[in-house]
Amino acid sequence: MSALLNLSRAWSGRALVVAVPILWLGLFFALPFLVVAKISLSELAIAMPPYLPLAEWADGALNIVLNFGNYLFLLSDGLYIAAYLESLKIAAISTLFTLLIGYPMAYVIAMARPDRRNLLLMLVVLPFWTSFLLRVYAWIGFLKSNGIINNMLMALGITDAPLQLIQTDFAVYIGITYTYLPFMILPLYANLSRLDRSHLEAAADLGARPLTTFLTVTLPQSAGGIVAGCMLVFIPAVGEFVIPALLGGPDTLMIGRVLWDEFFSNRDWPVASAVAVVMLLVLIGPILLLRRAQAREEG
């Protein structure tokens, strides 16, 4: 009898622990996602809100009309596919830049004297103390025609006329690389700081040069950190809206901007929702990759 009671108590305790995150996910992820999925299957209308309801009671019968036309529209129109591909390209190139800049920084921090590490890490996180929007705005000041960079180039006599830096894809790469850099450095640092130094000493003892040691010992062991950092940058960068809107040109085609345009400029909620659902599907691959990298890190 008492054994049974203990068992049920243990079970309810475990259920409670699991229930909290599940409830959280359900409330803040699954439910909003279902709402978006529902709108993506409805039809555009001049109403408040601007779409027709999916289900209607008519003559005592429940009529459900699912409209897959919004998805067909996305597929039939080259613009959306181009926007997804362009977003993936811009996110991938920016991720590569953050990796090239972030890896050496994470490496130096991980190899620094332990009492200095905290200071260096704080310097990485410090930009978060100001608003993301202001930091992107600051880049407008750097990049615009009569901005700091152009004025400097002209004062040094490198160029005669101002270069068109802002409103280009290049400015978007800079913006993403700059704002997402900490997300690359932190997981890489976490990985590199756990690197067993005796492996490096062993490699040196066996006659490996520093470069060989790095390529054959350090780099493979930090693969988990590289994947985690890359995905933490890549996944949010694909859906980025603010950076392309402020720094990109009118022809910088990113899915976050298309989504904004569909929702705000075109007031087409059903198509905007379909764009969002498809974006999630596109990101499932990279998300699974991130999960595997994390599982390997832990195991």
Partner: peptide
């Protein structure tokens, strides 16, 4: 009308992005 509006905004996206 709602239908013309979608073609109009769609044309506009094409014009803005130049493709």
């Amino acid at each position: 009308g709602a239908r013309f509006d979608r073609s109009l905004t769609r044309a506009w996206t094409e014009i803005k992005t130049g493709r």
